[in-house]
């Protein structure tokens, strides 16, 4: 064996050993459990907080509104479509930071303003500018929970 190799071999062995030791401590334990990634990161994503509570939670308390909703055209809609994400409100009734109560022409118009691309027959299309201009908001006449109960 050449003398250069004799001196270099232990050095190389040492480097490889140090690399393996460093690797052992640097790579997280769950890395490679399912594939080339850290499996624990899935759990970290799974525990992120939710903001939308879901309709089933809303109707536990707001049962009269839920009943009214199911009686009319808006049946089947989730509460948080219009009212915004309210998981915090579900945990603590007094927290209402995201609670939306918007009956404006622009807000209702998101679904109901005339647009040639809106083709569902049961989503009624209204000219939000021309429709009863004497009133300001849609909710001045329509009850959003029971849309065909027209207020006088």
């Amino acid at each position: 064996m050449p003398v250069q190799l004799k001196t270099l071999l232990p050095l190389f062995a040492l480097f490889i050993l140090l690399f393996l030791i460093a690797r052992h401590f640097l790579i997280p334990e769950s890395f490679g459990k399912y594939g080339h990634y850290r499996a624990d990161s899935m759990d970290e994503i799974a525990v992120l907080p939710i903001h939308y509570a879901g309709k089933s939670v809303c109707i536990e308390c707001h049962d009269t509104e839920a009943e009214m909703l199911e009686s009319d055209q808006h049946a089947g809609l989730s509460c948080e479509i219009c009212h915004g994400p309210n998981a915090k409100h579900a945990d603590d009734y007094d927290v209402k930071e995201f609670l939306v109560k918007d009956g404006s022409r622009i807000f209702c118009g998101r679904c109901h303003a005339v647009n040639a691309a809106r083709k569902l027959e049961n989503v009624i299309q209204v000219d939000v500018v021309e429709h009863h201009p004497e009133k300001e908001n849609c909710t001045d006449c329509h009850n959003p929970h029971a849309v065909w109960e027209i207020k006088e």
């Binding site: 899935m42 525990v47 309709k55 989730s78």
Partner: peptide, 23 residues
Amino acid sequence: CTLCYHRITKGLQPACMEVCPTH
């Protein structure tokens, strides 16, 4: 998009599907 992994693992719908009025 995580397909709302934090929601579907709790048995909830992803947020975009929860609020879709026409399903």
